[in-house]
Design a protein around this nucleic acid. Sequence first.
DNA 1: TAAATATTGTGTTTATTTTACACATTCATA
DNA 2: TATGAATGTGTAAAATAAACACAATATTTA
Lengths: 242, 242
Amino acid sequence: MAVTNYKATKSLKVIQSEVYSTNKIALSVDCVIFGFDENKLKVLLIRSDIKEYKGKWSLLGDLVNPEEGLDAAAYRILKKRTGLNDVYLEQVQTFGDINRHPAGRVVTLAYCSLINIQHHHLNIHDNELHWHCVEDITELAFDHRKIFDTCLDQLQKRVQEHPLALKLLPNKFSLRELQNLYEAILSIKLDRRNFRKKFFSMDFLMDLDEIEKNVPHRPGKLYKFDYTKYEKNKKKWAGIDF
Amino acid sequence: MAVTNYKATKSLKVIQSEVYSTNKIALSVDCVIFGFDENKLKVLLIRSDIKEYKGKWSLLGDLVNPEEGLDAAAYRILKKRTGLNDVYLEQVQTFGDINRHPAGRVVTLAYCSLINIQHHHLNIHDNELHWHCVEDITELAFDHRKIFDTCLDQLQKRVQEHPLALKLLPNKFSLRELQNLYEAILSIKLDRRNFRKKFFSMDFLMDLDEIEKNVPHRPGKLYKFDYTKYEKNKKKWAGIDF
DNA sequence: TAAATATTGTGTTTATTTTACACATTCATA
DNA sequence: TATGAATGTGTAAAATAAACACAATATTTA
């Protein structure tokens, strides 16, 4: 193989010309926004912008501007697409297969968030914007199915290590809601008594001395998550196990 | 806020012009290569290419070509910088602070790998290329210190969930070497008997019926890791705990 | 060749965590 | 006031994790 030999030191000029003459790569962000409603894990999708994928659903994305940081771009794009401006976004992975976008070389950064559907008002513009059940997702525009799968995998992993999932619930929630949420995200069934014991033993739930209203059965007690206590006592060390 | 209104459907032409007229973002890859030698965790660094950072050490990086995939770029760049061509690279995170690179807007993808220093020959070109003790790393060129820290954090987390770390050892290794490795990566002390019990109980170590040579004390038995067995029996479910 | 040194190899007890599992209580509704 | 539906609770058994000490073996040195 012909390996280019490098001078020990390059001037900025040389690098600048390399950078901007030969590069024709565009950067975009795609947001995967998870929500939880009616005991189902949902994801927010929009009708695709472009003809090639007309009718297909896609993630919330747009191009990154040259003069903005990556996280800033993600927040801007999410706001532009949905009106949401008070949600935490987290970078997940970057996708850049050569032919992933019909318009040319567009490398995209996947960002992920979890929001409480009831607490956030969607500001819908021209494009259709809808919550879709995660379990019903099949085909998406571009390589968005792959991006979505990656984000869902990461979500399933992360909710077991961090109290992320609680962002999807109302401030006051019952243990049943919490368990439904975990069962929906992980798509497994959990033992009710052991689930309760687990959460009580972690000791981050504050008993609010209130009970649910308007349920057609015995109402459950309501709790809220004590983030302050969590930050103080959270686990640092997982332990070797594979 | 002035939100741009979008037509329900855009033509590819429009998008193409948006993509390539307004975007002046370059993409690069930086590789964080970890190794293990003399019971120390090491990282492979190169003298910085450019004047601004002359004398500083930096990660192994270069620009992504428009016509290559991201992983392909990472492998190419690693090979170009080091001659290494048979190591597994994994994307970690993308860094894109506006002023992270003096030549302009360069967004970089961090890739990470672990290699056995004895098993890989470094092909050194013009630039100086050296293994540095991870514990001695202080300042690096660009924002490479931040990238390095992120990769080290991720390494510490991942070696506890996957048998990644074994890639850093010779094919045949003693339990002492294995423990030293984990202690170096995690920078903690582990109980020898419990460490051994843990690994034996996971049951992925094959006893080779050989012993160490040339050690100034009682030699230990040698083992190899059974990846096949691991793939069959690995854990799928971590459990909620935070 | 015997003693000193350094490290390997091994097991038990205790504490903690996880799992499996059933019934009485409470509220809403019919 | 009886029925339906979900809540709230405890225990025993099993699995895992943590703490901890001594005899065996090879090398080096006296």
